[in-house]
């Protein structure tokens, strides 16, 4: 019995039996390279990668780094969408390389991979995250309570009170939202969506007592009022946080002082 595999291989004139069964395709990755020690200008470089389309962009980057060009530089830690290290601009949109399947990207055409916008590129796909984390620290992303004594019991909360800020607890600080924001590209002083999301997480937490202080921080000229509701942040968030909605809730809390 002739197997379809052999038929296909014959038709394609491939001498190797079983080759047509290979799930591998050749995809082109067009990567924005930058190395200040070589050139002050960033350039595009193409890499041909044999890859299973069910694999992720991160797997392709690994293949390039391990087999084709060891100088390719990018960040990744857990590689499973939790640590938030590998946010990058893939085909023009911010995404996590570890959560983006190649088959979802139209691998017929070159797949562009660039560093996220609005932060200084250090090398290839690695950016300086310091301004991003400074804005995060500035909104005091930790529990602040009025009582000064040692806690002797749990701080209880109803399910509804917990639900109020559930969406914004999901942030992994990957900077996909902040670096998708046109306002942030033009003015890095803007706190940015991620810092506001993490302020929202405590402002609307019934156990926290420093909402007023956080709101005052975000009432600044570089605070929530810079938001122009472009929804790029909501579209970019790999955790599906409704970022623009959270920013709008902080805006309304500033007007109504209800939270």
């Amino acid at each position: 019995m002739a197997t379809p595999t052999l038929d296909k291989a014959d038709a394609a004139g491939t001498p190797e039996p079983g080759f047509a069964d290979s799930p591998y395709i050749t995809a082109t990755f067009r990567i924005r390279r930058f190395n200040s020690e070589v050139s002050a200008e960033a350039t595009w470089e193409d890499f041909q990668v044999e890859i299973d389309p069910k694999e992720r962009v991160l797997d392709a980057l690994h293949k390039i780094k391990w087999e084709l060009d060891g100088t390719l530089t990018f960040r990744r830690s857990c590689a499973h969408g939790i640590c938030g290290s590998d946010a990058m601009r893939i085909n023009g949109k911010n995404r996590l390389a570890c959560k983006t399947l190649i088959k979802d990207l139209n691998p017929e055409k070159p797949i562009t991979v660039e560093a996220i916008k609005g932060l200084t590129v250090l090398k290839d796909l690695v950016v300086d995250m310091d301004p991003f984390f400074q804005a995060y620290r500035d909104v005091m992303p930790f529990l602040i309570t009025k009582e000064t004594n040692e806690p002797t019991r749990e701080r209880l909360q109803t399910a509804e009170d917990r639900e109020r800020f559930d969406d914004t607890t999901k942030c992994i600080l990957c900077a996909a939202c902040t670096s998708s924001c046109p306002v942030f590209w033009n003015d890095g002083q803007y706190f940015g969506p991620a810092a506001i999301v993490n302020a929202h997480r405590f402002i609307f937490d019934s156990r926290d007592d420093a909402a007023e202080q956080r709101l005052e921080i975000l009432n600044d000229r570089d605070g929530v009022w810079r938001c122009r509701t472009t929804f790029n942040c909501t579209d970019a968030c790999p955790r599906g946080i409704e970022v623009t909605k959270a920013i709008q809730e902080v805006k309304r809390a500033l007007i109504t002082r209800r939270y």
Partner: peptide
């Protein structure tokens, strides 16, 4: 090749533009 690509925003971004 282009010098960095345009951000591929969706309806929200283009309505803002």
């Amino acid at each position: 090749m282009p010098a960095g690509t345009l951000y591929r925003g969706r309806e929200g971004m283009w309505s803002w533009v």
